[in-house]
């Protein structure tokens, strides 16, 4: 029940934040705040309905049917994904991707060294050929020495 009520508070806060949008609309026009307010009002009502529903369900003693999550594995997976996205602009796409593939494979239980190396290296190279050489996608090259490394790798692979 806490989550729907939190939704109500956030939606009301956003309704409050939409006040500033009225300044640009001319008299007699609906203005840019009309639609978001309509949507947020709908969200408030829907969240209240969900809160009532949750309260009734608790009254009936309905159990949470969701299976328990492997919290440590989940937290590690999320941390790896966050690190991947955070480090890509610094270390460059090739290096970060190779490291991420190895890390995520170990987490998934595929930890044989040969498999790790093959997937990290061959996978990254294949992705570079497909998206940098063929699709001309300017994937992050990294900064400083890592950019030099990425460019050297591209030249070695004849990507450019």
């Amino acid at each position: 029940m806490a989550a729907p009520l939190a939704g109500v508070i956030v939606a009301i806060g956003l309704l409050f934040a939409s006040r500033g949008l009225d300044t640009v609309s001319a008299p007699g026009q609906l203005g840019p705040s009309f639609w978001p307010r309509l949507v947020l009002a709908g969200l408030v009502i829907a969240c209240l309905a969900k809160a009532v529903e949750a309260r009734r369900a608790r009254g009936r003693g309905a159990a949470d049917a969701a299976p328990p999550a492997a919290r440590a594995r989940l937290a590690t997976a999320i941390a790896l994904v966050v690190l991947y996205v955070a480090l890509a602009p610094l270390l460059g796409f090739p290096l970060t991707t190779a490291l991420f593939i190895a890390g995520f494979l170990v987490l998934g239980g595929a930890g044989r060294p040969l498999m790790l190396a093959a997937n990290s290296f061959a996978g990254t190279v294949a992705l570079l050929y497909l998206f940098v050489k063929l699709v001309y996608l300017p994937l992050p090259k990294g900064g400083g020495p890592f950019e030099t490394f990425t460019l050297a790798l591209y030249r070695a692979l004849r990507i450019f």
Binding site: V85, F104, L107, N119, G123, L127
Partner: peptide, 17 residues
Amino acid sequence: AILNTFIVVFCFIGAFA
């Protein structure tokens, strides 16, 4: 394990593109 890993990488590329 391999499929999940590459799905995340493809999602990275797809979103960046």
